[in-house]
């Protein structure tokens, strides 16, 4: 699925609050590159509070496990964080999926 030339990729945002123990998933945003993603994450998900740590990762790079405590029917077999195909880069040659 080819992206239009003005569609910024999706990034997942993880924030560890000032005295927090671990990064928590806060949500996602669109940015053209990592630096912008970090800045936007600061603006949107932390409102610029001090002392927070932010991780941003392209959504397409996240690898996710299947929820193991659930019954097989509820556990998809793929390793992507989202069940639906929007964020997978399918080369044009492969055609519409």
């Amino acid at each position: 699925m080819s992206q239009s030339p003005d569609a910024w990729p999706l990034w997942e945002v993880f924030v560890r609050s000032k005295n927090g123990l671990a990064h928590k998933h806060s949500g996602s945003l669109h940015a053209p590159d990592a630096e912008t993603a970090l800045k936007s994450a600061r603006d949107v998900y932390t409102r610029r509070s001090e002392g927070v740590s932010i991780w941003v990762i392209p959504s397409s790079a996240v690898v996710a496990s299947s929820p193991d405590e659930r019954e097989p029917l509820f556990a998809p077999s793929d390793d992507k964080p989202y069940r639906h195909p929007t964020f997978y880069d399918i080369p044009d040659e492969v055609g519409h999926m």
Binding site: W8, H30, K39, S40, D43, R48
Partner: peptide
Amino acid sequence: PVLEQDIALTN
């Protein structure tokens, strides 16, 4: 031009 940047500029 983009929601994220709207927020950034108004910040």
